[in-house]
Computed example of a mutant assay.
Amino acid sequence: MARETTDGGVYFGLMSGTSMDGVDGIAVEFPKGKPPVVRSEAFVGFSEGLRDALFALQQPGDNEIEREALAANALAARYTVCCHELLRGGNLSATAVRAIGVHGQTVRHRPEKGYTRQINNPALLAEMMHIDVIADFRSRDVAAGGQGAPLVPAFHATVFGKKGETRVVCNLGGISNITILGAAGGVRGFDCGPANALLDEWAQRHLGKPYDEGGHLAASGQVHRPLLHALLDEPFFEQQPPKSTGRDLFNAEWLDARLAPFTSVSAADVQATLTALTAITVAREIERHAPDSRAVYVCGGGARNPELLKALQATFEESGCSGVPVMTTEALGVPPHQVEPLAFAWLAMRCVERQPGNLPAVTGAAGERVLGAIYPR
Results as ranks from 00 to 15, higher is better:
residue 53 A to C: 01
residue 70 L to T: 14
residue 88 R to C: 11
residue 71 A to P: 06
residue 74 A to K: 06
residue 73 N to F: 10
residue 80 T to D: 15
residue 47 S to A: 03
residue 83 C to N: 04
residue 84 H to W: 14
residue 80 T to P: 03
residue 68 E to D: 13
residue 56 A to P: 04
residue 71 A to L: 08
residue 71 A to M: 08
residue 60 P to K: 00
residue 86 L to R: 00
residue 86 L to E: 02
residue 75 L to G: 01
residue 82 C to E: 05
residue 57 L to G: 01
residue 71 A to Y: 09
residue 76 A to W: 06
residue 89 G to M: 02
residue 47 S to F: 00
residue 89 G to I: 07
residue 74 A to Y: 00
residue 72 A to H: 05
residue 61 G to D: 03
residue 87 L to C: 10
residue 80 T to G: 12
residue 80 T to M: 11
residue 69 A to N: 11
residue 64 E to F: 01
residue 59 Q to K: 13
residue 56 A to W: 04
residue 64 E to M: 10
residue 62 D to A: 11
residue 70 L to V: 15
residue 56 A to E: 10
residue 65 I to F: 12
residue 48 E to R: 09
residue 90 G to W: 04
residue 75 L to K: 05
residue 83 C to M: 03
residue 51 R to A: 01
residue 75 L to N: 02
residue 67 R to S: 11
residue 54 L to G: 00
residue 47 S to M: 01
residue 52 D to G: 12
residue 72 A to R: 01
residue 59 Q to I: 08
residue 50 L to G: 05
residue 87 L to R: 08
residue 80 T to Y: 15
residue 58 Q to H: 15
residue 74 A to D: 14
residue 77 A to C: 07
residue 53 A to H: 07
residue 60 P to M: 06
residue 50 L to S: 04
residue 67 R to M: 07
residue 60 P to S: 01
residue 53 A to P: 01
residue 61 G to V: 03
residue 76 A to Y: 00
residue 53 A to K: 07
residue 89 G to T: 05
residue 71 A to R: 10
residue 72 A to I: 06
residue 65 I to S: 11
residue 55 F to E: 13
residue 84 H to I: 05
residue 79 Y to Q: 14
residue 87 L to Y: 12
residue 50 L to N: 01
residue 64 E to R: 14
residue 72 A to V: 01
residue 50 L to H: 07
residue 77 A to F: 07
residue 86 L to Q: 05
residue 76 A to M: 04
residue 66 E to P: 07
residue 63 N to C: 05
residue 79 Y to G: 09
residue 90 G to L: 09
residue 51 R to W: 04
residue 47 S to P: 04
residue 63 N to L: 09
residue 88 R to N: 13
residue 73 N to V: 15
residue 64 E to Y: 03
residue 83 C to S: 05
residue 82 C to K: 02
residue 61 G to A: 05
residue 47 S to G: 09
residue 67 R to E: 11
residue 86 L to F: 05
residue 56 A to S: 10
residue 84 H to T: 08
residue 87 L to G: 07
residue 69 A to M: 09
residue 57 L to Q: 04
residue 63 N to M: 08
residue 63 N to R: 14
residue 49 G to H: 05
residue 53 A to W: 02
residue 61 G to L: 02
residue 79 Y to T: 02
residue 51 R to S: 02
residue 68 E to Y: 10
residue 51 R to E: 05
residue 58 Q to M: 13
residue 68 E to G: 15
residue 47 S to L: 01
residue 65 I to D: 08
residue 74 A to H: 10
residue 90 G to F: 08
residue 72 A to G: 15
residue 60 P to N: 03
residue 64 E to K: 08
residue 61 G to W: 02
residue 88 R to P: 07
residue 79 Y to H: 13
residue 68 E to K: 15
residue 69 A to G: 12
residue 52 D to H: 12
residue 64 E to C: 05
residue 65 I to C: 09
residue 51 R to C: 07
residue 52 D to R: 14
residue 62 D to E: 13
residue 65 I to L: 14
